[in-house]
Amino acid sequence: MSQKIIRSKEFTAGRAWGALDIATMGGVTTRLHWTDQPYKWHVNDGEEVFAVLDGTVDMHYRDAGEAKQVALHAGDIFFAGLGCEHVAHPRGEARILVVETEGSV
């Protein structure tokens, strides 16, 4: 199949952070995640683009050792560069498009 049409607002998963694999291109994966629970503090194996498609997510991150937080709403994007420790806490249900190195946490 050479195309996919994904209606992100219709996607749900059987567990928090369940994902629909959309594409893997040149070692980079694109996934649609559904969640209603926080993730865990982590550092990705590479850079990460985190785009909120539906819902609101409080993104906690550390910048030069200082804990910070930003509210991300539908349409907002968070870029986690190399070494950026972060954790996402959705407020209720959220759908998030994540682009990251294949096999990353």
Score class of each variant (00 low, 15 high):
4 K>I: 14
75 G>R: 02
95 R>Q: 01
23 A>N: 05
35 T>H: 03
77 I>S: 02
2 S>C: 07
23 A>Q: 05
53 L>M: 13
18 G>V: 13
72 L>M: 07
29 T>C: 09
49 V>C: 14
85 E>F: 15
89 H>R: 10
49 V>I: 14
75 G>V: 09
9 K>M: 09
7 R>K: 08
68 K>W: 15
7 R>L: 14
65 G>E: 12
46 G>W: 00
22 I>E: 07
59 M>N: 05
100 E>F: 01
5 I>D: 12
88 A>C: 03
33 H>E: 03
53 L>W: 07
18 G>E: 12
10 E>Y: 09
14 G>L: 09
9 K>H: 07
27 G>K: 01
33 H>L: 05
19 A>C: 09
66 E>P: 15
92 G>H: 07
72 L>F: 09
20 L>A: 09
26 G>W: 06
53 L>R: 02
98 V>N: 05
42 H>T: 05
29 T>E: 15
89 H>K: 12
69 Q>T: 14
7 R>A: 10
63 D>V: 15
74 A>V: 14
103 G>N: 03
25 M>W: 08
6 I>Y: 06
98 V>Q: 07
29 T>I: 13
22 I>K: 00
100 E>V: 01
97 L>Q: 03
81 G>L: 08
49 V>H: 08
23 A>K: 00
41 W>S: 08
32 L>Y: 02
87 V>G: 02
51 A>D: 10
20 L>T: 08
44 N>E: 15
31 R>T: 11
3 Q>G: 10
9 K>L: 07
84 C>V: 15
